[in-house]
Nucleic acid binder design. Sequence first.
DNA 1: AGCTAAATTGAATAAGGTTCAGCTGTCTTA
DNA 2: TAAGACAGCTGAACCTTATTCAATTTAGCT
Lengths: 251, 251
Amino acid sequence: MASEPAETTQAAADFDAMSSSKTSPSTRQTRVRRREGAIISAARNMFVTHRYAGTTMAMIAREAGVADGTLYTYFENKDALARGVISDFYKRLTESSQIGVDGKRTTRTKLDFLARHHLGCVMDERGIIEMLPALTTSLTDYAGSEVYKLNKTYVAVFDRIVREGRACGDIPGDADVSVLRDIFYGALDYGGKSLMMRSLRSGARKADMTRLVDRLVGMIVGTSSHTKSVADRLEAVADRLEASLKQVEDT
Amino acid sequence: MASEPAETTQAAADFDAMSSSKTSPSTRQTRVRRREGAIISAARNMFVTHRYAGTTMAMIAREAGVADGTLYTYFENKDALARGVISDFYKRLTESSQIGVDGKRTTRTKLDFLARHHLGCVMDERGIIEMLPALTTSLTDYAGSEVYKLNKTYVAVFDRIVREGRACGDIPGDADVSVLRDIFYGALDYGGKSLMMRSLRSGARKADMTRLVDRLVGMIVGTSSHTKSVADRLEAVADRLEASLKQVEDT
DNA sequence: AGCTAAATTGAATAAGGTTCAGCTGTCTTA
DNA sequence: TAAGACAGCTGAACCTTATTCAATTTAGCT
């Protein structure tokens, strides 16, 4: 998760494959790709260790082994470079999440993995996603941005789990998926921050994480057994009653 | 460390209270405090409309009607000024929240109000709290900061509701309060962002907010399927249904 | 009024993001 | 293979802004 070459190499390979000209591994295109990867990697290192405000373009250039001006041939400005780092982060996060989720069977274990994986990655490269708000000039701009699309792609992993969970009855209720999504990721981000602060004193990070994730996933999946008891049927009735009641109340 | 705004204000207040001399409303202390208020207010306006990166110290000085250098007699630097704005925000938020909550009777209505109030305030002065991550140099520093203490004071409003709710049986489970707190505020912040983005297209902000808050509060209070007994739940639904129908009939 | 210290000022300084005129290596074409 | 064209690269100069500080003003006091 630390080094990007996997992602960059992959992208470069795709690009080469698309262009019909067979280029040797040291063609100009390849070198440019490689260098872009090096810059993003360097920028990530600096941003993670010194935060956005604490890293200068000169630091990134030195770390990447290029001149200051070179950065501007790859990214319009410091903000765009930071957005590039975030985009890269989301790409890696999406891929590793989907792979991990595919290896789990039940709705609960999928969500459990996703939550822990998210927490781990975000805490690992803490500061990367936290740059986002400061980089968002306006919501309308953000809505059309690359980062927004990649974020949507990432959370789609969660959305799919929820929809499948609904289909097989694991997830009760009929709330909008977006509501569950906000609760899931919002709670994880806040919980992650609390976790880090608490682990400054007591190193009991793992137990704390388990408590948070269990509670959160439990809230979504529900603890109801799968036996079709009278209680379950009553529950379903209550669900429907509540839904129509809400409609009445809203008008 | 030391974000001094609150520091200074508090110190000044203490000083006045201690000195037996009755100072007229145009004493030096008073004027200083007034000016500090003007600076914080000016800074808030600029930060809200232009974000942190987009506002210059010169802009704030002009808005506050003082010279550039004057800002630095009140705040160590731009970061400290921003922290002062955040501190001020938390103070107002805490007070208005507590007042509102005190006006509600049940656990559910208290949480419902708190959630809506939080969402409203944060969306209203959006960008203020979002500055925080960028201003946090290190977690250890933050743990001892004024802003952190004020945040703790603010979320204590929530903590109290939860504890009372537990005591009277409204809130089931024995999860750590901190977990519920992270879920509550995390979900609200994320949900708030989603809300704003969605309301760019469809102006259905109110209905969306209701859905989010209901689901979230329901998860905590336990009207949801897995926490309360079915009998209790049906009873509660019947109560609400009767009340709503009465309202409908009256109109 | 005169003294002291706190407040205030705004021009000077410094840091860092950004630009751009030139340089270098690679590709293309004859 | 040599010459021309050009993409990429360079880093010193430029410009905006946060920050400093010596000088000045103002308030409080005797």
